[in-house]
């Protein structure tokens, strides 16, 4: 027989080859380990929910939900303790709302500019710079807001306090800008070239084409970008903790300072917080509210983005 012919048990020999056996075993074991790594992310989420809910449970056993949602004072460590989340919530939404008021027009203009107007070379240089902006530590932004922009803004805006919601809101708007631009520019660039060509063939200008073709076609992707950006602003901590003050304050005036949910958690964590006390459980109740808000926006953003990706 020729040298390449199969011995009767060649396949069996391969199957029983100890080296190959070890390799197969390693492959299976690694698959399990990799699965465990991936499953860990689910465990993290589960642990987050469990921690927040179980600690909040202790809180809500002593504070009725109705009082939590309707009381207009948040004074957990005073002798006359009140546990109304409204002051923290309004401050949070004020700051995040101001951030969005800044980031929406700037973000839209920048992403249209980068995706439709800028030459590829310019885009390739600008994107890393925007990424650099995203990399600046938030505590540095906080310093900038409190010690540079606030004194500056006080010269122009009468009645602006040293701690206020306006300036940190503005700074957060700039901070989330790179994040928003990167997602919405991706969405715009994903719009098929054929749609653009169709619009140009009708004789549209670049600007008209962006408004009538790109924005509607990329709408769900762009909306997702802004929802995700909003969730970021809501959860942002250091800028507001530094520049918006740590005093719970139910106010309709963003020139005043007011503690957000995140700033409250920071403030309490800095102090001596006895484990198991009601004060300790307040930060988890506040955290639960924060988690639910950001979760809602993230989930909507996720599905809008997914729908957009499936469309193209």
């Amino acid at each position: 027989m020729a040298e390449t012919s199969i011995k009767a048990s060649e396949y069996e020999a391969l199957r029983n080859n100890p080296y190959l056996r070890r390799g197969r075993l390693l492959s299976v074991v690694m698959r399990g380990i990799l699965f465990a790594c991936a499953a860990l992310s689910v465990a993290i989420t589960a642990a987050i929910i469990w921690v927040l809910v179980s600690e909040s449970w202790i809180f809500f056993k002593q504070v009725p939900l109705l009082a939590f949602l309707t009381d207009t004072h948040w004074t957990p460590v005073f002798t006359d303790a009140h546990y109304g989340i409204l002051p923290l919530l309004t401050a949070t939404f004020w700051a995040a709302g101001i951030a969005m008021a800044v980031a929406t027009p700037l973000g839209l203009a920048l992403s249209i500019y980068l995706s439709e107007f800028a030459r590829p070379n310019l885009r390739e240089t600008l994107k890393p710079i925007l990424e650099m902006l995203a990399a600046v530590p938030t505590v540095v932004f906080g310093y900038f807001a409190l010690l540079f922009l606030t004194p500056l803004a006080r010269q122009f805006i009468p009645g602006l306090s040293g701690f206020n919601l306006l300036v940190p809101g503005f700074v957060m708007g700039i901070m989330i800008l790179p994040y928003i631009v990167s997602i919405s520019e991706d969405a715009m660039r994903a719009v098929p070239m054929s749609l653009r060509e169709g619009a140009f063939a009708l004789g549209m200008s670049r600007w008209r084409m962006s408004m009538t073709v790109i924005i509607p076609a990329a709408f769900s992707g762009v909306t997702a970008a802004f929802l995700l950006g909003f969730a970021r602003a809501v959860g942002e901590t250091m800028v507001v903790a530094i520049a918006a003050g740590q005093n719970p304050n139910l106010t309709a005036d963003p020139r005043e300072g007011a503690a957000t949910i995140t700033a409250y958690i920071v403030q309490m964590s800095l102090g001596d917080l006895p484990h198991g006390s009601l004060a300790y459980s307040t930060i988890f109740a506040a955290g639960l509210v924060l988690f639910l808000i950001t979760l809602a926006f993230n989930v909507i953003g996720f599905f809008l983005r997914k729908r957009f990706r499936e469309a193209y």
């Binding site: 048990s9 060649e10 396949y11």
Partner: peptide, 22 residues
């Protein structure tokens, strides 16, 4: 069937990785 021993390469029970070694 790979001859001479008639191993069925596309049989479910045959390990594709070992097939690729042959």
């Amino acid at each position: 069937n790979l001859q001479p021993d008639g191993l069925n390469l596309v049989d479910k029970g045959v390990d594709p990785i070992l097939v690729r070694l042959l």
